[in-house]
Design a protein around this nucleic acid. Structure first.
Lengths: 339, 339
DNA sequence: TTGTAAGCGTTATCAG
DNA sequence: CTGATAACGCTTACAA
């Protein structure tokens, strides 16, 4: 049924040469005659030899895998397409380089730090991705003290503490949305933002305040947690204000959708009475009785890019942080001129 | 900045004992005095020692990681919550046992088989999950020839070729839906199914035909690919039939949503003129102008269960295939009695 | 109770 | 060009 594992020694015996000759032959390195090489290759193939991963890793101090810690938050994780798209992009690029993605799950920041510590000390991975960076994120500090572990921060350069990062131009996104609102005649806009501790929330907060001031818009912001419930509550609150906003921007698709629903329930007509705009575009925004205007993002591509950066870092190539090109606003039925 | 890796030998030297004494102490094994043990533990902690993963794996032929191959199909993967929920469930359970999830990406069955081959021969993982099983799936055959590699099939036992599997009772689900339709007075029902090569599609196909016959329902079935476009086209076709169905069941949430949309565009009132039912429940069904009736599934829990099975298998415990309890139909606004 | 040494499967060094 | 041999860091007989 199952052939016993075939080692390099088996191949050596079977082809009547030494252990090292086999190693040279199989790795395409010089030090072995063409004739021997071919014979070894043939035998290895016949025997179905594959390098043992543990042995190889031990020998050359490389695992050919990189790590990603997922935060176990079923309420949010499962609801957003983001995570899966990211993993898809990461693994697609990693696969090209023969790398695997090693995933572990944490319940909180403390647990995630433990995992990173473990990876650093145990050599379980050749590099790590950092996601959902917070203000003063302890992971940044940790990895800064361990530059021997290649790290790519998937978040704004200003939060990366000098580590290599892949940033999206949040400020541009904010500007595009705010100017669009202003163009459509809105004077009072609001935002249902993500968690306040997240770095990109902070950056958007600042950018929105700045651009609102510049454009003379009245701007209100509430922070929620990306969940349907959070979006619902914040929208209720905003729409109950004496001077309710005429356009609301949501930091993710899920909240935008629930927001639009709340508006409908309150008898508001979207977009005549209220424009709804989502920061993240997705299937949710697209396929919906009412299409939701949203800022486009190509998460899969972002994943590919991040993986490429990490691979280069691991290979010791010179790497610089990347700023992603500005995304475009996809205008759909949920937004328009003020009636 | 970065401390050089600390090995067991470092700890041995620092605590003035031998290499093996350290190993015994750190692994809580007998063969070392209480005094020595404590000293070693303290020193190891101070030095920040962690077992090197490659060395440990090489020594005891275990990697403490299990593999999952993702099929790279951006069109589908990113659209469904399924994948992320599954990974969340898997990693949550694996974490409890100190295991990691190793992910690789394939573009097709051939590539996936190569990856499995590689894992089997290289010992890169201690076990694997098989997902989206097809009829006569070559992966089943492959893993059956390599029982030394623990495998859990996340799919119907009838497709698992004797491997340990985690099945959901598809037939029960089919029955629940069909009986619901019949109860509501529908006589002509249709189904927009998933890809025909998938095992669970096949099983549902059969079950639907059986139960429709039993209940005296007229039943039509079209096969699509889980994408919005597929759902749209099939719905168009069904609604154009001379004797159009009055209830359509979709094999996933995405197609159900687009189906409901198509109906609306054609001037049909859901549910008065047409009932729409989704096989998979999800946020998509829940938060929608029109709630979509759907069969509930707890994918996270399913992931946990699958991971538990695989861990037991790896530990050599006696394991039996599991049938998941029957899911309940969550009735929402998209379905109801025939007008 | 302790230390020595062999072995896990590679890669890489160094004589022949 | 080839074949011993050490090294990677850990576990585990086996000897002291």
């Amino acid at each position: 049924m199952s052939k016993a594992k075939v080692t390099i020694t088996d191949v050596a015996k079977a082809s009547g040469v030494s252990n090292s000759a086999v190693s040279y032959a199989l790795n395409g390195k010089p030090g072995v005659s063409q004739e021997t090489r071919e014979k070894v290759l043939k035998v290895a193939d016949q025997l179905g030899w594959r390098p043992n991963k543990a042995a190889k890793s031990l020998s050359d101090a490389r695992t050919n895998s990189v790590g990603l810690v997922l935060t176990y938050d079923p309420a949010v994780l499962s609801v957003e397409a983001f995570g899966m798209e990211l993993i898809t992009g990461l693994t697609a690029r990693l696969e090209e380089a023969g790398y695997s993605l090693l995933i572990r799950s944490s319940r909180n920041m403390r647990a995630e730090l433990d995992i990173l510590d473990d990876w650093i000390a145990s050599g379980a991975v050749d590099g790590v991705f950092l996601q959902n960076v917070e203000l003063g994120d302890p992971r940044i500090e940790l990895m800064s003290h361990h530059l021997e572990m290649p790290t790519v921060v998937m978040g704004d350069e200003s939060l990366a503490g000098g580590l290599i990062s892949l940033s999206t131009n949040e400020r541009d996104g904010v500007r595009v949305i705010a100017e669009y609102c202003a163009d459509q005649g809105h004077r009072r806009i609001a935002r249902v933002a993500g968690p306040e501790n997240l770095g990109h929330t902070f950056i958007r907060d600042n950018a929105f305040m700045e651009v609102a001031a510049r454009l003379g818009l009245q701007y209100t912001c509430l922070h929620a947690d990306y969940t349907p419930e959070g979006g619902r509550k914040c929208t209720e609150r905003l729409l109950s204000l004496p001077n309710a906003p005429t356009a609301i921007i949501y930091d993710n698709d899920v909240m935008a959708l629930t927001g639009a629903q709340v508006a409908a329930v309150r008898g508001l007509n979207v977009p005549q009475d209220l424009s709804v705009i989502s920061w993240d575009d997705s299937f949710l925004c697209e396929v919906n009785a009412l299409g939701i205007t949203a800022l486009g993002h190509n998460i899969i591509e972002r994943g590919r890019t991040a993986a490429g950066l990490l691979l280069d870092l691991i290979d010791g190539k010179p790497v610089e942080s990347v700023w992603e090109p500005q995304e475009k606003l996809v205008v759909r039925a949920s937004s328009g001129p003020l009636a």
